[in-house]
Design a protein around this nucleic acid. Structure first.
Length: 762
DNA sequence: GAGTTTGAAACT
DNA sequence: CAGTTTCAAACTC
């Protein structure tokens, strides 16, 4: 498995440190409730003084295990998964040193996970028996991780009650005072024992024996569970359906994922029907559910429609891709594997911000973290060859997937989702649901990628709708590896989009694979532009964009649409990039942390972490990092001739000038807008108008007939005055009065007509 | 757009 | 840790 260096762990941003989420993955492979447990042995915790990464493992699942481990070479953690039916245990080496070490660098809200080391993990996975549920959290720097993993070797299938705390896998976040013990039932369910804020999300995947039986994912998120009741732990998984548990004290707000056998789509339905935009920045208790089910080998050649229904029920974001296995395929090919839809449950940084990623049986998903907090990458890894990937039906032979955990920080402004085939990753053959269906195709699982790199040129046009910042990177060396890097805002958009469709097929006929997204929407009151403003392209020429000179690199981002030369800051040079990141971190562990400290809720205590060293700019030019960040220089600055302080007249002048300029720009913009509006109004006007005080009236009402009638009225009034021998002044008054009456009638008529017209057109 | 200035990052 | 060099962005013309 992979290793995370302690120092990297120590660099994990607070957002991640704050992560309290604990996910549980439950899978049932039979109509009979199947208990599933993922457990970590106590030693998996590693050194108490070391930071433990996130190890999320869904045992018993053919799906890739998610693991994020501390880089403690000396520590070893073992994730044991036990098949509830056979009692076979698959152990995933959690802290095992890898020949291909996982490179995890975490800084600035980002973690990079590289290289999947599967071989050892696979071997280790087959070792001892153990427990299935593995929940992990990340502790804060210097704070010990507490993993309480009772050896509940409970292998009893069915919905064994979780009342027994011993059978519960308890995972806490290291160092946090508000740790929430989590109890996982034998059914893989997790409930928060005392997590006041802890919310558990459980995704249970059950493959119906009958192809016609719908598969439902029910995500239950008990909140504020103070106690675990037997009821909560005993949620049964029956007949292809996973019944979500409810916290006795909390209402259930499940999301149901239904796999329709008659079509190739799975839709996530929000039972609550309430969509909530997830703001990774501020909103706590957010849960992101990302379901990505990749097609199995049996359906590998079928194009599929993969509607993603984003359902936000109780702050749950669902991003789902269906596996869309056609019933025919299920019948002819190895159905066992097809119906299994492994789920990855991933804790997301930030309190209660969670990401759950159900994966298809042969899909693999890796979390890629980049130093810096803005990007969070998820890599989908496809199964490679049959060797190692395909397992016999024997549950014990299930290979352990080496998918890396995906961690998304709450502070994520952008989220990237590289999708790649992991040729080096051994895939776990889905376990057969039934003994009779245990035969798994021995052919290499041509697992299709949602966005195969090989088809990148083809699909790229299909992603025209993707937001800025999306990168489709070809695989290095022309391998069948590709990445789709999606900005986090994309996810944000998904949160608000009613449906997101990811079409997946080898031929990409559905170029429409198009991800349907909506326009950027404000995030927490901040404009999306402000929160996810695309970074300026760099122009690096000599640094290969692998030094902090490069803003992209310094911000933990891949270069995208930059003007750099010989750029290595991309997925094609992951090795170099990882090395460079490590070098930077070795030099300065804070290298990828924001230089500007976060001010406290509107306070102006933002300041540069290191202070500037300006000599000649007076700290009033953008050369100065303080000034550039629009903050005052502080005592830690070593600048000379600083003018960037509160009372500085130069600064005030500059600010006033800037403000004035901004006001001018705004005024000009407003004037332009108004002028444009007026012009548009004029152009759209089809008839002349007269003013009626409150609005414009078409003076077509002043027709010849009206004029004649008016004149007649006036003449009549004049005659009357003449007949009554009124004085001239009085006659004029009467005539004018009549004229006024005429005008009023005209105006009233026009106004009425206008109103009627508007009513008709409305 | 080319050249200069600037200061952070990297290096010694 | 200080001095120097490198680098890319900011700035000027």
């Amino acid at each position: 498995m992979d290793v995370v260096s302690p120092e990297l762990n120590s660099l994990l941003p607070d957002e991640i440190m704050d992560m309290e989420s604990i996910e549980d993955v439950a899978q049932s492979s039979q109509d009979v409730p199947v208990a599933m447990e993922t457990d970590t042995t106590p030693e998996s915790v590693g050194s108490s003084t070391e930071r433990v990464g996130v190890a999320v493992s869904a045992s018993g699942l053919p799906s890739p295990l998610v693991s994020l481990r501390p880089a403690l070479d000396t520590s070893t953690a073992t994730t044991k998964t036990t098949d509830s039916i056979t009692g076979t245990t698959v152990t995933t080496s959690a802290l095992q040193k890898l020949a291909v070490p996982l490179s995890i660098s975490a800084a600035n809200h980002q973690i990079i996970l590289n290289k999947v080391a599967s071989a050892q993990a696979t071997e280790a996975a087959r070792s001892a028996g153990g427990q299935k549920l593995l929940v992990t959290t990340i502790g804060k720097t210097g704070q010990p991780i507490v993993l309480q993993l009772p050896h509940s070797a409970t292998k009893s299938g069915g919905a064994a009650g979780v009342a027994d705390a011993k059978s519960i896998k308890l995972v806490t976040i290291g160092g946090r005072s508000d740790l929430k013990p989590v109890v996982g039932s034998t059914t893989g369910q997790v409930a928060a024992l005392q997590g006041q804020q802890l919310k558990t999300v459980q995704i249970a995947k059950k493959t119906p024996v009958s192809s016609t039986a719908p598969i439902k994912f029910i995500i239950n998120k008990p909140v504020n569970s103070k106690a675990l009741s037997p009821q909560t732990s005993g949620a049964p998984v029956i007949a292809g359906r996973v019944l979500a548990q409810n916290s006795p004290t909390m209402p259930q707000r499940p999301i149901t994922l239904t796999d329709s056998p008659h079509n190739t789509t799975i839709s996530i339905q929000s039972i609550a029907g309430k969509k909530i935009a997830i703001s990774p920045l501020k909103t706590p208790s957010k849960v992101t559910v990302v379901s990505v089910a990749s097609p199995t080998s049996g359906a590998a050649q079928k194009s599929m429609t993969l509607p993603v229904s984003v359902a936000l029920s109780q702050q749950i974001l669902s991003m789902q891709q269906s596996t869309a296995v056609s019933p025919v395929k299920v019948a002819t090919s190895q159905a066992a594997a097809q119906n299994i839809k492994p789920v990855q449950s991933v804790a997301v940084g930030g309190s209660q911000f969670k990401t759950i990623i159900p994966l298809a049986a042969q899909s693999n998903l890796q979390q890629i973290q980049v130093p810096g907090s803005r990007f969070h990458y998820v890599r989908l890894v496809t199964a490679t060859t049959a060797s190692g990937a395909i397992q016999s039906s024997a549950p014990s032979s299930s290979a352990v997937q080496t998918a890396k955990p995906m961690v998304v920080s709450t502070g994520a402004v952008r989220m990237s989702v590289p999708i790649v085939t992991a040729q080096t990753v051994k895939q776990v053959a889905p376990k057969p649901l039934t003994s009779g269906a245990q035969v798994v195709s021995g052919t290499p699982s041509q697992q299709r990628l949602i966005m195969p790199a090989t088809a990148l040129p083809q699909i790229q046009p299909n992603f025209a709708n993707l937001p800025p910042g999306t990168v489709l990177a070809p695989a290095p060396g022309g391998g069948n590896v590709g990445y789709a890097v999606l900005p986090a805002q994309y996810v944000t958009q998904l949160q608000q989009a009613p449906i997101v469709t990811l079409a997946n097929n080898s031929a990409f006929p559905t170029a429409s694979a198009a991800v349907q997204t909506q326009a950027r929407l404000p995030l927490n009151g901040m404009s999306a532009e402000a929160t996810s403003r695309p970074r300026k392209p760099c122009n690096c020429t000599k640094s290969q964009c692998l030094k902090l000179y490069c803003d992209c690199f310094a911000n933990g981002e891949f270069c995208n649409n930059c003007n750099c030369n010989n750029c290595f800051n991309n997925l094609e040079h992951e090795a170099e990039r990882s090395k460079a990141i490590k070098t930077c971190l070795d030099r300065n562990p804070e290298a990828f942390k924001p230089k500007i400290g976060k001010g406290k809720e509107g306070e102006s205590d933002r300041r540069h972490s290191k202070g500037c060293n300006c000599k000649r700019s007076g700290c009033l030019k953008n050369y100065c990092e303080c000034y550039e960040a629009k903050i005052m220089c502080s005592s830690i600055c070593k600048c000379v001739g600083c003018k960037n302080f509160e009372e500085s007249p130069e600064r005030k002048t500059l600010m006033h000038l800037a403000d004035a300029a901004e006001v001018r720009v705004q005024q000009q913009t407003a004037a332009k807008t108004k002028l444009s509006s007026q012009i548009s109004d004029l152009l759209m006007r089809t008839t002349p108008v007269i003013s009626s005080g409150g609005g414009r009236l078409p003076y077509t009402f002043v027709t010849k007939e009206v004029l004649e009638a008016t004149c007649e009225c006036l003449l009549e009034q004049a005659k009357r005055a003449e007949q009554t021998r009124q004085p001239q002044a009085e006659a004029e008054r009467l005539i004018l009065e009549e004229f006024g009456h005429c005008l009023m009638r005209i105006i009233n008529s026009a106004g009425k007509a206008k109103a009627d017209f508007a009513a008709i057109n409305s």
